[in-house]
Design a protein around this nucleic acid. Structure first.
Ligand SMILES: [Mn+2]
Ligand SMILES: [Mn+2]
Ligand SMILES: [Mn+2]
Ligand SMILES: [Mn+2]
Lengths: 226, 226
DNA sequence: ACATATTTTTAGGCTAATCTAAAAATTTAT
DNA sequence: ATAAATTTTTAGATTAGCCTAAAAATATGT
């Protein structure tokens, strides 16, 4: 049995999973094609193959949803991707903007034992270098209460815990601004004119960031107990 | 340029390299087919493609030799394979009989930066867990003076530094006999009847091993200076 | 409601990598 | 030196994954 699954199929499943993650309706052919940078025709082709293997549910013109088996493969892939990213950053000293492409390859290495040992070696990290949760071996994600910086009000404080945009440009911008994960911030003022915001950093510097940036930073609010 | 090379092509190049390594004549179609567990027809096909890309020199019915470019790819692959094996054993605690198949996949990860950082992280190992030399970034192997245990004479002493056979069966046998790399041995007696040999281990145990085993163990002889 | 725009599927083709069977070349043995 | 055995190549198919162009289905706008 086991009808072995190709790297390409794995990548499609991950893409479909991520599309479904936020839109709660079936993933459209076009959405998948965009995510995979391929043609709609190729997607239709692949969907049929995945459907044949019972990894997705497919109805012509109605889009696809994932089966339990398909979801399992997708979350395992995400788990592997994010654990490898932690390895690259923590052990090999790569910076957070350099690891995605390498992890994109490493996630396809086939060995359950390998990934469990890697997890242990990394001391069971719950989040990757971008603040994204690492699912456990059963595919369960740690849920964390977080808001976009853009959604906070004046005088609220919190810690940067994640990014919404994974491009090198954005991550390098954050490095230069010292807005890395773990940084404590206080929102000082919101400017209605262009929705930019002024924030206070723990080193007492005050900086203004654009609306665009504020909508790509996840903050965990800090409360009194702390 | 760069005409990107597939994993399959990489595996062929490595196989051809290893065949050429010991036979100093061109690698035959059949030898390659055996190494790759594929048909001779498929090999002819692939050879033509590799020849087209100037990675091998090919003449119909005359076998193949490797070009500089092909050799470079092969030694880089061997370098990556062996470094990953060191990682798996040293960092993730795999045993030496479990790492080959995983390294067989990891060797295809594309990132020069990754492999140089891995090398550094592992503190520039010169040999892999099986005692095989790890070529440097320029494809140069460390040469070590070694002989097969079967070729030693009575009363000679030495250290086990490598294995000729990489099967799990053999490696597990060595573990059970405490004949792991680094073990000091003294050859006590050779039995002409079946070419088995009696050796003395550093823990003062004396064991007899078969001709087959003695022909698969590399020993670095120890001399007076030590 | 019906014309237009958009999305999705189908049709037909391409390449890489594989296979089996048959033909051709080379090597070995008498 | 010729026949027999072996090796290698060619021929013809297959499958996964991709493409473009055309057709079909669905969604949108007035
Ligand atoms: Mn991938
Ligand atoms: Mn990440
Ligand atoms: Mn390989
Ligand atoms: Mn090895």
């Amino acid at each position: 049995m086991e009808s072995s699954i190709s790297q390409t199929e794995e990548n499609y499943l991950k893409a479909i999973y991520k599309i479904q993650e936020r839109a709660s309706k079936p993933a459209s052919t076009n959405a998948i094609a965009a995510a995979m940078s391929t043609s709609a025709a190729s997607v239709t082709d692949m969907i049929k193959r995945l459907s044949e293997k019972d990894l997705v549910n497919y109805e012509r013109y109605r889009g696809v949803t994932m089966t339990k088996d398909g979801q399992r493969i997708a979350t395992t892939l995400i788990r592997k991707h994010r654990l490898w990213e932690v390895f690259l950053v923590e052990k090999l000293d790569f910076s957070w903007d350099e690891v995605h492409d390498i992890a994109e390859q490493l996630e396809h290495i086939q060995s359950a034992e390998l990934i469990e040992r890697l997890d242990e070696y990394l001391e069971f990290p719950r989040f990757d270098p971008h603040g994204d949760p690492i699912p456990d071996a059963d595919g369960v994600f740690t849920h964390r209460k977080q808001v976009l910086l853009g959604e906070m009000s004046a005088n609220e404080v919190g810690v940067i815990v994640g990014v919404q945009d994974h491009t090198s440009d954005f991550l390098q911008y954050l490095d230069r601004m010292e807005l890395t994960l773990g940084t404590e911030i206080k929102l000082l003022e919101k400017y209605a004119y262009d929705d930019s915001v002024k924030i206070l950093l723990s080193n007492d510097k005050e900086i203004v960031i654009s609306k665009k940036v504020s909508q790509h930073l996840f903050i965990q609010k800090e409360f009194l107990e702390k």
